[in-house]
Amino acid sequence: MTVPAPQGARRPSAAGRVLPLLLLVGLLAPLALLFAQSWRLTADDRDLAARERLGVEYLRALAPVTDALVDAQSAAVAARPVAGAPLTRAVEAAASVDARIGDELRSRERWAGLRAKIEALGDRVPADPEAAFDAYGEVTDLLLELHRKVRETSGLVRDPRSDSFFLQDGAGRDLPEAVVATGRLADLTVLAARRPAAERDRTAAELAALRVAALAPAGDLVTDLRAAVDSSESADLGPNVLTPLDTYQRAVEALAAHSAPAGRSGVVDPAQVAGARLDAQAAARQLQPVILGELDALLAERAGGLGRDRWLTVVAGALAVLLWGALGAVWLAAARRARRRAAESRREREGSDTPPEEAPWQPPSHGEPRRLQPVGPVREPGAHWGPHDAPR
């Protein structure tokens, strides 16, 4: 009976060999995609925070320019000598900031135009108060446009956090507009007292419009700052901001009371409005550095957190690569063992199919080899072959 040879282990198919490799690649591909996306988003957020901090620095440099321009306008409208030193120092400080970060914020062109207008006013202030009021109005309009430009190019207007968004809106839009409009309101009350009675109606309409323009951004500022405090997780924002905000709010309320028209004549006291303007401007001068400082602190904290997230992403990516490498090593070792077992099985199968070679016959041996014996009659010892023995 023929006994069948034992079957060796089946050799894995091509799909069985490739499937583990495909699984490893399929595991690595989404991990690499998640790592790249997380790295890119973290880098974008970090760059945005860095640009926003540049915007905060630029806004901080524009604040003295705003105050100096408003003071110079009031002096020119009141026919007083304009002190050029504060405005010159403020312009030089802002110019140094623009020279350093203006290219990145794309503010060079607007700053150059604003500086040219300011220097032109310093060289020749209009003698007519009405002309001076209009000339300074054009310059302050350019200044407010520069505030808007810096907020846009730095990304402050697109800030994703509610607390920092309200802070930048208050410091970069509401407060400069309120300071400029308050100065114009006080200066227009001075001009209104000099205008003829025929222009009383036009003057009253202008005063009402400027009063709204001064009080509306001041109210928006209060709303923005309170919203920032309510939505922020910072424990220092509320105590640091609310105290100077209360001072500013009281100054604005006094300005609103003194600038309200008295009776049908619509006459207001220029001295009272000018005093209220100085108080409101002084309160704004104390409030704006606090707002910008808190905003910069929030942005710095965010940038630090994004940096830590970036390192965590790197560590997670390294661990994923190590895990993938370990799985690949296990798969490679298993593949090598499978190939080795297949080779051994093939050798065993080939050995069972080939018949064994037979060794040549050997006579049995029992001790010493036996001497050969002659065939035929035994001769006597010592006998020799005779001459006739050969034929036999």
Rank of each mutant, 00 (worst) to 15 (best):
R10G: 15
L27A: 15
L27N: 12
L27D: 08
L33F: 04
L34F: 11
S38M: 12
L41S: 13
A43T: 00
A43R: 15
A49D: 12
Y58A: 13
D67L: 07
A72T: 12
Q73R: 10
A79E: 11
V82R: 13
A90L: 04
R106T: 10
S107V: 14
R108E: 06
E109W: 12
E109L: 13
R110D: 06
W111H: 15
G113H: 08
A127W: 08
P129S: 03
P129Q: 06
E130S: 06
F133T: 02
A135P: 03
A135F: 02
G137S: 08
D141P: 03
L144Y: 08
H147E: 12
V150K: 08
S154A: 09
G155K: 09
R158Y: 12
L167C: 02
R173N: 11
D174E: 07
V180W: 14
D187Y: 04
T189S: 12
L191G: 05
A193M: 04
A204T: 11
A209K: 10
V212K: 10
A214T: 00
P217M: 06
L225K: 01
A228K: 01
S234K: 04
S234F: 03
A235L: 13
V241N: 01
L242Y: 03
T243A: 07
P244F: 01
Q249P: 03
L255R: 07
L255W: 11
P261R: 04
V267K: 08
A271W: 07
A271I: 06
Q272E: 08
L287H: 00
L292W: 02
D296P: 03
D296A: 09
E301H: 13
G307K: 09
G307Y: 11
R310P: 06
L312D: 08
V330E: 04
A343L: 02
A343S: 05
E348Q: 14
G351F: 04
S352A: 15
W361A: 15
G367N: 01
R371Y: 00
L372P: 00
Q373I: 05
V375G: 03
G376Q: 03
P377F: 11
H384R: 04
P387A: 13
